[in-house]
Nucleic acid binder design. Structure first.
Lengths: 326, 326
DNA sequence: CCTCGCAATCGAATCGTTTCGATTAGTAGT
DNA sequence: ACTACTAATCGAAACGATTCGATTGCGAGG
């Protein structure tokens, strides 16, 4: 409630002096500075963020836009981003769009209540992104690329991850490969499909078309696919599943039918979500370096905020994690 | 970049008219409203949040303060909060304090960049909370109580949850109970201990003092406790573990030692984190209704923002989830 | 004694909205 | 033709900080 003006009056100085005194500026005499500080303390002065932001044209805050918090690795991502944000004196906020369609875009980005943002949310349209990006609001896109001077990209190499996982299955002796993908309009699904097929081509064991299925990237969709998979006259000996959620669901279904893993069917997933370590057998999967992704995304944002205009995309490699399912 | 003034000039109206025109106020003629709107669109006008907040003294944003995002149920909590926030035209932000000690308190709360906040983070000190709470910044505390006119509490009944779980173990025939708690300075650990002991007293099977252990609420600390537990000359037949992380760790340790669950030792945990469903056997546990907690917290915040001064704490009940481990 | 330079402080403009009381125009009533 | 009223619009004052050029006071140098 008390404003800088109240502090100034009670300390017997002008508002401008009070302002710089609070910022420990050397231009004020030590004695006045102490006086201002003690008055501020005494009357419970708190700077008003809105006023400061308005005048200084920066907020000291950055946003991380996610679709929802359910994602398994968001905590690691955020840890990476926070680390760097704090080192640069910024505060990182997380905002989800799943339930607040557009609200967060308007409040945070359109109305510039943050200095920049990191976006990992394929449900936000390209148009919306293009609309809000500006020289004073650089955006870092994760796992997505849009050509624009104020859009920077940090990508994970999903293709090579899927390639490694599939190659691993093949080279473990399972030449009869099946593939379970996500929704056909999913960019990630598409990339992972390409990687998997590339490995198959290399080893000359491209799966039959009816050994490629599509799920919804959810556990239950994986579970439901078990019928289709087992219905095949010639069940594949190994399956690359394009994400762990589906892989876990499928695994549950297979075990219920008495299929032994990896003896009857080997599995590999993608994402390295936490439960992959706890299912039995533990699931072979592909890890995305989310912490590093956060670090790089934040660093890129800092660069952008400093005016760096190099928008060359940064690509991170994934890591194959071999466990009992293969 | 373009401001309301630019819009007004180009549309040939005053700034004040432009302002209300953009808000679809009926005081402006339909024709001018359209003109203003089209000019705004044309020159890419975007309202400046800081200016708006400064003048209107509200931001339309609320914050959820968590220690970190690693927590298993935060996504449910956030979903609850978001639902209600959106229904009231507010945007919910998540902010973690683990890495940004104090920064988020200053930027968001002290400098009032949000209208209110929901706090679930025992690492934020009572002093800090008391310092920032004010009539214009109501705070909702989850699982914590502080007496203050602008602090509202929503609590989960951890005690009765622990009571139910322990009673369930005893009534399943295991009279020889062990208890694994969290750090002794943890409020949650203390509440859960009370509940567990209350059940034991009721059934007259209070555990021996050396059958009560303390961990760190982490999986690895649970794993490490397996030695102490098995070292006992008289291993308890059932163990109530004060959180699932430790329970899962302990379970892993026990299985490695060839202990059968629940035949040799029965287990119950607390929290109902996701992996409890995937470990074998699935873990009996206590579910906190995080979605409902989010809903209630948000509703309480809305009440507070409307000036309601009733700070009577709200208490939510937990739910026992019986699975294979008991 | 006068001026110069420096340190300390001040005043006023500014950021971009919102809001409220004042003004103008237009219409209707008598 | 004049007032009364409403509808539409305007002007100016906030909101609370920052910032920059201007001012004051004072000791040193000539």
């Amino acid at each position: 409630m008390p404003s800088l003006r109240d502090v100034a009056e009670q300390a017997g100085v002008s508002v401008s002096t009070a302002s710089i005194a609070l910022r420990h500026d050397t231009r004020v005499k030590e004695s006045t500075r102490r006086r201002v500080l003690s008055v501020a303390e005494e009357i419970g002065y708190r700077p008003n963020g809105a006023a400061r932001d308005l005048k200084s044209r920066r907020t000291g805050m950055i946003a991380i836009l996610l679709h929802d918090l359910g994602g398994p690795f968001y905590s690691e991502l955020l840890r990476g981003v926070s680390t760097r944000a704090q080192a640069n004196g910024l505060t990182a906020l997380v905002c989800t769009s799943a339930l607040d369609r557009g609200g967060e875009l308007t409040r945070l980005l359109r109305e510039k209540r943050v200095d920049g943002a990191i976006i990992l949310d394929s449900s936000i349209s390209e148009d919306d992104i293009l609309e809000v990006a500006s020289p004073s609001l650089p955006l870092i896109l994760l796992d997505r690329q849009i050509q624009h001077p104020n859009l920077y990209s940090v990508l994970c190499d999903h293709r090579s991850g899927a390639y490694m996982a599939t190659l691993h299955l093949i080279d473990a002796g399972y030449r009869d490969i099946g593939i379970i993908l996500g929704p056909s309009d999913s960019h990630h699904s598409h990339l992972r499909e390409e990687g998997a097929l590339q490995a198959c081509r290399l080893r000359q064991c491209v799966p039959r078309p009816d050994h490629i299925w599509h799920g919804a990237f959810t556990e239950s969709s994986g579970y439901q696919l078990v019928d289709s998979v087992l219905a095949s006259d010639d069940v594949p000996r190994a399956i690359f599943v394009a994400n762990d959620e589906m892989a876990v669901g499928l695994m549950r279904g297979l075990l219920e039918r008495g299929v032994r893993i990896p003896d009857d069917v080997a599995l590999a997933g993608f994402d390295d979500i936490r439960i992959t370590q706890y299912v039995s057998p533990p699931l072979t999967t592909v890890r995305q370096p989310m912490y590093e992704l956060g670090i790089l995304a934040a660093d890129t944002l800092m660069r952008a905020l400093r005016g760096d205009e190099d928008i060359t995309p940064i690509v991170l490699q994934t890591e194959l994690v071999v466990r009992g399912s293969s």
